[in-house]
Structure formats: C-alpha cells, structure tokens
Design a protein around this nucleic acid. Structure first.
Length: 299
DNA sequence: ACAGGATCCTGGGGGC
DNA sequence: TGCCCCCAGGATCCTG
C-alpha cells in the first residue's frame, strides 16, 4: 500500500456555485488535452526506473507484472484519444482514463503522497509521475503494443475525434438515432471526448434543445451542432491551458477554476445571453442544463 | 439492434 | 453536534 500523507483537499471558496461538490477539474477532452500537453515535455525522453501500485484496484485492473514490464522503459510519446491518455513506452503502451477525479502529476519524489494515489512511476531523475483518483472511476491499463491499443479502442467502437468530424458521417450518425441530442453527444461511439459539461455547452452554443431527437434534425442543424462542439472544445482548451497550468507542477493545487460555462452548473441563474433562468433536467441519466429562451423546446 | 437504466465509488453538503 | 442520505460523473454491464 502506498503510504498516505496528511494532505487534505483545499476548501471551496465561499459562495462557489460551480461544481458545487468539487474542488478539482472534472476531466473531459479539454482537461485531458491540457494534461497531455503539460506532461509531454516533462515525460518524453525520460526513463521509468520503478513502479509502485496501490492495493486497491481501479475499475480496470492492470496486468500483473507491471513493474517488470515497465521498468527501464523510455517514455517516447504521450497522446490523447478521446478522453484516453496513451503513453508510449518503447514497446508497451500505457493507457489511462482519468474518470471523474483522476489526476496525473509529475512531482519531485520527495513530495508527500496524497491519499488515493494508486500508481507511482519513479523516473530516472528524482521525479515521479503519479496517478491519483479519489473515486476510482479512472483506469490504467498496460498493452503490449500499438496494435493492442488499437484493438481496445476498436472493441469499444470509439468514435472519431471531434475536430476531425466528417460532415456526412456526423449528419448520418445524428439523424440515424432516435434519441435525444444530449444522449448522442455523450455517446463515445458517435464522437469521442465529449462529456456532460461540454455536451450542454455545445447544445447551448448551437441553440438546440437537449431533448430534440436526432432523427428530427435537418442538415443545417447537424452542421451547426458539429461546429458548436468544435467551438466549445477549442475555446475550453485555450482557456484550460491557463486555468490549470499548475495542474502538473504540483505546487499550487488550487488554481482558479472560474470556468466560463454559459449553462452548465448555472441552474436558475440568468442566461448570459437572454437573461431567462437556466433550467436543469435529467437526460440519459445525467444532469442537463439549458436556456429555455435560447434553446427552444421541440413541439 | 437499440435505447435506457443500474452500477461502481467517494467526499461533501443538506436535512433532521 | 452528528448521523444519514443523496448527489456528481464515464464507462460498462444489464434489461426490455
């Protein structure tokens, strides 16, 4: 078992309404992209000297001889695919999902180990890559080679990246589905990387009601939705880069998470565009926020 | 086949 | 003060 240090999470600022229960970033595509970009210069070219694994398994159990497989391996690259982080280890690949509360950090080996740290990779220069995940919704899996990683994504039927969406493909997938737009956006088989927050934000950006059924949309609407997904994610990646810059550095964990969401987490607050109160409903088992003025309800 | 629901997991917040 | 219940979410498994 990895020893736990006495560090407690920082308290939420008073009056904080966004992400009421959380004092950390919920990782969706923009957060994962930021983590990958930040980790790349810290990890690439280094070598893994040792691995420590916690006793409690994550949702996807790692293969047994972790240490022997990974030990001595160089980190050749780190990439993102949807919300998955793929680390290339000169042969094997490490595939990580941050789930809801997962964190990947590079810190000095001497830094205290916070609770819920499940994996520690000691690098060859007194730094450690640490995977921490309070709720253990995340996963870390070792694959023998690139083909095995591809097979894993193929088996999950992981859809294309949102930035590469072919208009015809997108229109076909959306209009083929007899279910609400919110559920379609959350479906990783249709498009990879969109989560609950950015699904709501994208629908607001496109001014489409979340309960609209996919098979009722016409081409201009699917085009608008596709563009909205790209716009919202691009904007978030640009902002997240600065808002969680110290995510990796380890020193100031607080960061300032004033996110500029227009609907997510803003239930009952006035729409920043039309001032009508944002509404919250549950769709596909997920809280869904929308503006009844900007996103007109279908008949 | 497809859509929707339950499940996992934990800490914080609200209610009593 | 302190307990208990509820809530949040992504992926996956299960049901209709």
């Amino acid at each position: 078992m990895i020893p736990a240090a006495d560090s407690t999470p920082s308290a939420l600022a008073k009056g904080e309404r966004l992400n009421v229960h959380y004092n950390q970033v919920m990782p969706e595509l923009p957060e994962v992209e930021t983590v990958v970009r930040d980790l790349r210069p810290l990890l690439c070219g280094r070598r893994i000297a040792a691995v420590q694994a916690g006793r409690k398994a994550l949702r996807r159990r790692w293969s047994k001889p972790w240490g022997t497989v990974v030990q001595g391996r160089p980190v050749l690259g780190i990439h993102r695919r949807g919300k998955w982080i793929v680390i290339e280890l000169g042969g094997p690949y490490l595939v990580i999902h941050l789930g809801m509360t997962g964190q990947l950090r590079v810190v000095p080996a001497s830094a205290p180990t916070p609770p819920h740290t499940h994996l520690i990779f000691t690098l060859d220069d007194d730094l450690q890559l640490r995977f921490r995940d309070v709720r253990r919704f995340g996963s870390a899996t070792l694959f023998p080679d690139a083909a095995a990683v591809q097979a894993f994504f193929a088996a999950a039927d992981l859809g294309p990246e949102p930035f590469d969406l072919d208009p015809a493909y997108w229109h076909g997938r959306v209009t083929a589905a007899h279910r609400c737009l919110k559920a379609i956006l959350l479906d990783q088989r249709v498009v990879a990387g969109v989560g609950n927050i950015y699904a709501d934000e994208a629908l607001f950006e496109a001014r489409l009601h979340p309960t609209l059924l996919g098979d009722t949309l016409r081409r201009p609407q699917t085009a608008k939705l596709r563009q909205a997904v790209v716009t919202v994610l691009t904007r978030a990646i640009d902002k997240r880069g600065s808002s969680i810059r110290d995510y990796v550095g380890g020193s100031g964990e607080k960061g300032n998470y004033q996110r500029e969401f227009l609907v997510y987490g803003r239930t009952s607050q006035p729409c920043l565009r039309c001032r009508r109160p944002i509404e919250r409903i549950v769709l596909a088992g997920r809280s869904t926020h929308f503006c009844p003025g900007c996103q007109r309800k279908p008949r």
